[in-house]
Design a protein around this nucleic acid. Sequence first.
DNA 1: CCCAAATAGGACTGAAACAGTCCGGTATAT
DNA 2: ATATACCGGACTGTTTCAGTCCTATTTGGG
Lengths: 157, 157
Amino acid sequence: MTDYAVVLATHLAAVEGPHAARDLAVQTQIPEPTASKVLKKLARAGVVVSQRGAKGGYALARSPEHIGVNEVIEAIEGPIAVTECSDDTTDSSCEYETNCGVRANWQRINAAVHKALSEITLADMAFPGTAELVSIARSSNEAERMRAASPQSNDVH
Amino acid sequence: MTDYAVVLATHLAAVEGPHAARDLAVQTQIPEPTASKVLKKLARAGVVVSQRGAKGGYALARSPEHIGVNEVIEAIEGPIAVTECSDDTTDSSCEYETNCGVRANWQRINAAVHKALSEITLADMAFPGTAELVSIARSSNEAERMRAASPQSNDVH
DNA sequence: CCCAAATAGGACTGAAACAGTCCGGTATAT
DNA sequence: ATATACCGGACTGTTTCAGTCCTATTTGGG
């Protein structure tokens, strides 16, 4: 579902102008009800704006270079997890300092992911420049090495 | 489960020396069978090494500063998703160029996440330096802004 | 003024993933 | 020999998720 959102948002970035949900579904090969659902979430999150009624449709809320893929992903999956250490009365879970230290640092991981994602804009996705294609080629070795490991779920979140 | 892995690995990085699964479970407040399961996966992926038999236990396979959290996370969840466009006969799913272009760029997102995660080592998690604490403070604004959005699942996976 | 087009919102369902547990097997110090 | 501790996998109940469908509500056009 998250990947659908990225595909749809990128398509909106590439073509520009309002699109009916049905048209987008056809053009992106995504089943229509699902595409509609995704677009609703994107609208709710403020990534796209919607126009109801006849001749209505969806369009990006801002210009593609000002929308990071993090916004698209978080619109679908909710905010990247922030494990709060203890907002509860019992701080018993914190009596082991080393463990608590880890949980405090957990947000560093989230921040890193968030930052990495926010640095990729829909403009990058829709109109990849040559400079960035190089960086893709360079990282393809890593990608292939990764593929060897375990065969499990997809999704980013 | 992924967060358990990070907690356990960080604990191994912080203390050093072999630890029995049971001890680790107690020290990290993680239910023992689950901790054991996680450790097995980490061993399988080569993040930690195991010593069987009496006086056995787990220890990091390498020094903490040479193990990125990406290794820990990928050991549990499998490699970060790589949506391959088409290794199939029918290239029908590629007849819409804009759509296919997106899928090609999808791996850029994965690469970015992978890179961000690999730049955080277990040493960073176990012994956070002051310099990096600054970067955490700086990014806490973002974190709080994120919190406002939608109330959904956690996990990084 | 009325109708058709199009989104908003939510209820519902079947399938998949996941956390957590448990057991029989194997290796190894004492 | 024996107690200790990891290895491997099977099993289960819960939860999440993708996908569908139905009923408003809004809006442009004849």
